[in-house]
Design a protein around this nucleic acid. Structure first.
Ligand SMILES: [Mn+2]
Ligand SMILES: [Mn+2]
Length: 537
DNA sequence: TCCAATGAGG
DNA sequence: TTCACACAATCGC
DNA sequence: GATTGTGTGTCTCCTCATTGGAAA
């Protein structure tokens, strides 16, 4: 039930109510594991006046970290100064807080800088800013700017990050999720939140997660803090992990650190990182390093382990091919000379070429297998398995991309397969789900790419046996089936179709793409690579 | 004058 | 932050 | 030609206004 219209003012309490919903959910769900400081923060938010809450909700949605007071024009907030004062007294915002000079100056437009700091050479804003910074100290600039304008910043922004994490289950979404839903742009599956399986059961779980996340963030910015690499490495190697989310976060950070050490030539440290990680591509990297450093026997031994007990498809493919040039299975390749310079995307060029004599080429990539799987197994994906739905606004169960997703739901999948096995049932299930769930958020579904028309053409041209085995493969192997599907789905007519991966002159088939071709062959589907070769001169 | 980039907003 | 591409450097036959 | 490594671009709605820099 959309309650918002674009460019039409929402009810005065709209943004405030969204904020309070977050606060109430967190207070209700996690009261037992929040510390006194955090509880006090929640209390402060609920205690300030209605108008102050309205303003706070607006401030939270602004970019920050510093916001100019003269840019706070909100009709629903009465007496701005009173509310600012109250928010400050409650410790929720700071007014005119100190900050590095260049940051403060960025609050001003270029025209304002010219007016307020006369005597500086007129040039680009960046240069002007640099000139002013070298002339004044941070403190001097603060007093000078305070005479011209006022600004505020949200205090304890970390508290709001925590609120977002506990409400949404991740840190990527924010209060705009409410708006998108209320505008009717996104719908959400009406699942029931599993109150007996919280995302974080004890304070320890939360703390471990936060520690891991900061380590992970650091592993992304090692270039800025190279001196911290060693410390983070040892910390991660000794970090206990209890849940699989923790394990995965830790593994990915370790893989990143390993890669960093590799680039610096610190191969022993790299090996240590990879040894502590249970996730691809840790063992592949180890095989390479061992080979490169002359430890041939250890390298081959590990490679043998990968072949005998691969942890994922990528490992298996790597182990089969490493050291054997031109080894492994190869998809059929058609080579074409690239005669004219093509300003357009190479995939579009290929699409035109392939459909010159009729048919339609769709640039869907992974959207084809994933969206079809979403439609075919919708009830399986949103089945209320214990612990799968712990937060509002989920577009998938927590474990959608975990290796045992399908095992946990084996019975449900088998039931759904009985419907899908029949060609008519398959078609009915997909089209009716499309209509019933249109625009409902599903991590596998791209509603834009898989329009009703596209879906009908696909069902019309690709044989049922192929589609059925394709989605069956995907739902059972989501971690690997998520990437690498060929660029183009080309539909010529009933029973006449092909999946085409387009390659430019310098492009090479990627491991994930090779793996998909392997499975397409096994499933009996038509697939090939269309390679454009540079014009010989 | 035009334009791309950015941010605010529903 | 993700995935896939573009491009460069190197390897091995 | 195959392989490996590295850097990059486009994204999670869509529209409007503002800003700052460049083209004309
Ligand atoms: Mn592609
Ligand atoms: Mn391609």
């Amino acid at each position: 039930m959309p309650q918002l219209r674009p460019n039409t003012p929402p009810p005065p309490d709209y943004y405030r109510n969204n904020l309070l919903r977050v606060v109430e959910f967190v207070a209700h769900t996690y009261a037992d594991l929040l510390n006194p400081r955090e509880l006090l923060y929640l209390h402060s938010v609920t205690q300030v006046s209605r108008d102050a809450q309205r303003l706070l909700a607006r401030l939270i949605s602004r970019k920050g970290p510093r916001i100019r007071e003269d840019r706070l024009n909100y009709t629903e907030v009465g007496c701005l100064q009173t509310q600012l004062q109250q928010l400050e007294q409650q410790g929720l915002i700071d007014r005119n807080p100190a900050a590095p000079a260049d940051r403060l100056l960025m609050l001003c437009t270029k025209d304002e800088l010219v007016a307020w700091f006369p005597g500086f050479a007129r040039s680009s804003k960046a240069v002007l800013l640099g000139d002013i910074v070298t002339r004044y100290s941070d403190v001097q600039l603060h007093t000078r700017l305070s005479a011209c304008l006022n600004w505020v910043s949200i205090r304890q922004a970390g508290m709001l990050d925590l609120l977002r994490l506990l409400y949404f289950g991740d840190s990527y979404r924010d209060l705009s999720a409410f708006v998108l839903e209320d505008l009717g742009l996104v719908r959400y599956e009406p699942y029931v939140i599993d109150r007996s399986n919280r995302q974080f059961d004890h304070r320890d779980d939360l703390d471990r997660y936060l520690t891991l996340r900061s380590a992970r963030d650091l592993s992304h910015r090692l270039a800025d803090f190279p001196q911290l690499a060693a410390e983070v490495t040892t910390q991660l190697l000794h970090q206990p992990c209890e849940t699989r989310i923790e394990q995965r976060t830790r593994d990915r950070a370790l893989n990143r650190l390993g890669h960093w050490h590799e680039r610096l030539g610190e191969l022993d440290s790299a090996l240590a990182c990879y040894a502590g990680s249970n996730t691809h591509p840790a063992r592949e990297r180890s095989v390479r390093i061992l080979k490169k450093t002359g430890q041939v026997q250890r390298s081959e031994c590990l490679q043998q382990q990968l072949i005998e007990a691969p942890r994922c498809a990528e490992e298996e493919d790597f182990a089969q091919r490493f050291g054997k040039r031109g080894g492994g299975v190869k998809p059929p390749i058609t080579s074409v000379r690239l005669d004219c310079a093509t300003p357009e995307r190479i995939e579009d060029h290929a699409a035109q070429l392939l459909t010159a004599n009729g048919g339609v080429a769709l640039h869907l990539e992974n959207n084809l297998p994933l969206s079809l799987t979403a439609l075919a197994y919708w009830p399986v994906i949103f089945a209320e398995v214990p612990g799968a739905f712990t937060n509002p606004f989920q577009s998938a169960p927590v474990d959608l991309f975990w290796p045992d997703f399908a095992r946990t739901r084996a019975t449900l999948i088998a039931e759904q397969d009985r419907i899908l096995a029949d060609p008519l049932g398959f078609r009915r299930e997909l089209t009716s789900t499309w209509q019933a769930k249109s625009d409902t958020a599903n991590a596998l579904m791209s509603w834009r790419a898989m329009s009703a028309e596209v879906l009908h053409t696909i069902l019309h041209c690709i044989p049922h046996t192929i589609l059925f085995s394709l989605v069956g493969h995907v739902i059972r192997n989501l971690p690997m089936a998520r990437t690498g599907f060929p660029d183009l789905t080309v539909l010529y007519g009933p029973g006449q179709y092909e999946f085409v991966e387009v390659k430019g002159p310098t492009d090479q088939l990627q491991p994930a793409q090779r793996i998909w071709f392997k499975h397409l062959t096994r499933l009996g589907a038509n697939g090939r690579v269309l390679k454009f070769q540079a014009q010989a001169r």
